[in-house]
């Protein structure tokens, strides 16, 4: 079976495997949040640290911690650490 990095098999496995990783969370509104994923739950509610908010690709805000309500989440993607 061909696998991506980290050997995740299902969406749930993927979500489990990315805790503590640098991620980009895109919301339905198009706004991006870049930061470190602290944890998430079954509703895709998300807690993030060192979060930067990007609107149209421009940095608009920074949050030490932030909670994102799951219904707004379009996707969560991992990023390579620079």
């Amino acid at each position: 079976m061909a696998e991506g990095q980290s050997g995740a098999k299902t969406p749930a496995d993927f979500l489990k495997s990315i805790k503590g990783k640098a991620v980009i969370v895109k919301l339905n509104s198009g706004v991006d949040y870049r930061g470190v994923l602290a944890c998430l739950d079954g509703y895709m509610n998300i807690a993030m640290e060192q979060t930067e908010e990007y609107v149209n690709g421009q940095l608009k805000n920074k949050y030490g911690d932030c909670f994102i309500r799951g219904n707004n989440v379009l996707y969560i993607s991992t990023v390579r650490q620079a």
């Binding site: 030490g64 911690d65 932030c66 909670f67 309500r69």
Partner: peptide, 13 residues
């Protein structure tokens, strides 16, 4: 009402 909430952030410590 909760359905309007997008994000909640505590104050910067």
């Amino acid at each position: 009402r909760g359905d309007g909430v997008i994000l909640v952030s505590p104050p910067l410590r």
